[in-house]
Computed example of a mutant assay.
Amino acid sequence: MYLTNDEERALNGEYGEALEMAYRILSSIGRLTNANHLIKISSAHVSGVSYSTIGDYGKEFLENLSLNAKVSVPTTANPAGLDYQNAYGFNINSNYVSGQIKIIEAYRRLGVIDSFTCTPYEGFYLPPKGSHVSWAESSASIYANSILNLMTNRESALSALASAITGKTPYSELHIDELRKPSLSIQIKMDDFSNCVKFALLGYFAGRITRGPMALQNIKNPNPSEAKAICAAMGTSGASGMFTINEKMDKVERMDFTNDELKTVYDELNDAEKGDAIILGCPHLNVNEINEISEFVGDRRLNKKCLIFCSRKTYEEARRKGYTDRIEKAGAKFVCNTCAVFTPIISNLGVDKISTNSCKAAHYIKRVHKISINLKDVNEIIKESCR
């Protein structure tokens, strides 16, 4: 892979250990992905934030790095493993709290925006359409390519961090127009495709079929909530980084998605008739989604624990608009800047079954926390959980 003289000097350590490490990471990835050179990016989104996923080794790496490095482009960060403004809530032990707060402090020293959300495109900096970016978090990178008309590969925690520091990424895969063309067309053959869960089940099915871009046919343009559902589920079940909607395709492989395929995926993820608690916000909810929940709840009370995950910025805006009042009066709790899956909060609920509208949450909660899942659309969950 070609490097400029300046990049070569950075790779050789002339500009310090942090840049040397970052360029070594990008050079290795570039060689593996057949990149010819590096290109400039407009923004980055880093994962590897929750103490549940990176532990002490990741914490120490970030602490050391943050002493000598700064990000060079606007950079947002994925959710943490707890709400650091309510760090000791939900019976989280002090060692976990300490480790998580040190990770957050390290990212702040690096200059990362205080976002801590898996939906950085909602309420935070967005570069112009067509921009090259380096986004980790599978659902966000798929959303960037498919909905926002940005260009990014599905980055890892390390590669996105290296790009954030250097402001560059290898020119490969989904950064190249020719490689963004779908090689598979999925034909949706269903009359009723009316809620986010069905869009998520489609995404979970599609993610398993191909690693490359795909075209989803015979489907209405998804609204932001439905698009998030597709992206999160697709990123969970497979390695594809992009889809298109109703793009005309010639001479590509075709596959059908019918009620039979939908039922197969649903039966795999759903293994409980009802939940003992409710988890909403995987991916994080936006202000409009919080308003919808408020309208569903009305003046009723919830008869079980309900946790709603969103960014702190989203929560504050929803609170100012009066959307959170009825939800909190109904008995639900908002958990800000926290991952709805990779957190001890879920296990500490002390329940055997959880209701959620998220295929991503269903997939990981079953595997990480060994809790059964009742998968339903949000209005159905609220309807059966209110009195």
Rank of each mutant, 00 (worst) to 15 (best):
H45M: 08
G30M: 14
S52A: 08
H369P: 04
H132W: 07
A332W: 05
L19T: 03
R211V: 13
I365M: 05
Y125L: 05
Y323K: 01
P222A: 08
A87I: 06
T53E: 10
C336W: 11
R109G: 06
N68S: 03
I382W: 04
G207A: 02
N291R: 10
S134Y: 10
K353A: 08
A232I: 10
T210L: 06
S372Q: 13
N374E: 00
N218P: 01
I25T: 09
G89V: 05
V71A: 00
F309R: 10
D325H: 13
V49L: 09
A206R: 14
S347V: 03
N93E: 10
E380R: 13
A164V: 06
G123F: 05
E295S: 14
Y266I: 15
S385G: 00
Q187W: 04
L158G: 04
G89E: 15
M214K: 10
M214P: 09
L11W: 14
R208V: 06
P224W: 11
T119D: 13
D114C: 10
S47D: 10
C231A: 12
D250E: 12
H369Q: 03
N218Y: 07
T258P: 03
I346P: 00
A87E: 11
F193Y: 11
E8V: 12
I345P: 00
V112A: 00
P224K: 11
I103R: 05
V335Q: 10
T314S: 14
A157P: 06
I188D: 07
Q100K: 10
V112D: 01
I103C: 01
S141Q: 13
E316Y: 12
A87G: 03
A44H: 04
I327Q: 03
D114S: 12
E292V: 15
G81H: 06
V335A: 07
P79L: 00
I54E: 00
S347A: 03
L19N: 10
T244I: 09
R31V: 15
P170F: 04
E20N: 01
Y2S: 05
K59E: 00
I103F: 02
A106Q: 01
K333S: 04
H284M: 05
C118T: 14
L148E: 07
D83K: 00
S28K: 15
T210G: 01
A77P: 02
N145R: 09
Y323F: 05
Y107R: 02
G130I: 10
F205L: 08
V368T: 12
S27T: 15
H284R: 02
N270E: 09
S172Q: 08
E273Y: 13
P283D: 11
A69P: 01
P213E: 15
D83V: 01
N93I: 10
K366F: 07
D177Y: 15
N337T: 12
V49H: 07
N145W: 03
E17C: 07
D114H: 12
S43Y: 06
G123I: 05
A200S: 06
T244P: 14
S172A: 15
V197G: 02
G111W: 01
A106L: 03
T210Y: 05
L269I: 15
Q217E: 12
G298H: 01
G235W: 15
S163N: 06
F193H: 07
S172W: 08
E137L: 14
E261Y: 13
N64H: 07
R108C: 01
V335W: 11
G16M: 05
